[in-house]
Simulated scan of single mutants.
Amino acid sequence: MQAAAASRNIAEVVANENVEVAAIDIPEVVGDVEEFNRCGIDVDDLSFSETVSGHINRPYQESKLLIKEIINLDEPIPDPQGTNAWHWEVYGTFNGSEGVYELIIDPETNTVWYFVYKSN
């Protein structure tokens, strides 16, 4: 996973325990709706799969601001499972720990299938 991510232009996001997000070394994200929907995704109207919704111990999970940051920080790749979904891997921090956010969204149903932070 890290080798594939390292070969792509990866930016970083930072989230603290209150799920506040700040971009590092990138232009400020502005409210350009077209930019947020560049992959056919309406972030403001996302739904979450039962699996994602079941992870109540992940405070960042339903942060649409964090999802917007991830989508705008890097180009997605097709879902490694071979579906029509989009997959993002973005380096960042959570509660002071460095790691990677992984996000998979199906643009046809506007559903988050996978959203996890993996600490290094």
Rank of each mutant, 00 (worst) to 15 (best):
Gly31Ile: 00
Val14Gln: 14
Pro107Leu: 05
Asn95Cys: 11
Ile105Met: 03
Val33Phe: 10
Gly40Asn: 09
Thr109Gly: 03
Ile41Met: 10
Pro76Arg: 07
Tyr91Asp: 14
Trp113Cys: 06
Gly40Ala: 11
Glu98Val: 05
Ala22Thr: 15
Arg8Gly: 04
Tyr60Phe: 14
Asn37Asp: 13
Val33Tyr: 09
His55Trp: 11
Glu89Lys: 14
Gln61Thr: 08
Phe94Gln: 09
Lys64Glu: 14
Pro80Phe: 07
Gln2Ser: 09
Gln2Asp: 15
Phe94Val: 04
Asn72Gln: 15
Glu102Trp: 02
Trp88Asp: 04
Val29Asn: 01
Asp32Ala: 08
Val90Asp: 05
Glu62Ile: 00
Tyr117Gln: 04
Ser47Arg: 13
Leu65Arg: 12
Met1Lys: 11
Tyr117Ile: 02
His87Met: 07
Thr51Cys: 03
Leu66Tyr: 06
Thr111Glu: 15
Gln81Phe: 09
Ile71Asp: 01
Ala85Leu: 06
Asn37His: 07
Val52Ser: 02
Leu65Tyr: 08
Asn16Asp: 15
Ala22Gln: 15
Asn9Arg: 09
Gln2Ala: 13
Lys64Asn: 11
His87Ile: 01
Ile56Ser: 14
Asn37Trp: 00
Thr109Glu: 14
Ala23Val: 12
Pro59Asp: 13
Ser119Glu: 14
Thr83Lys: 10
Leu46Gln: 10
Val29Ile: 15
Ile104Val: 15
Ala23His: 01
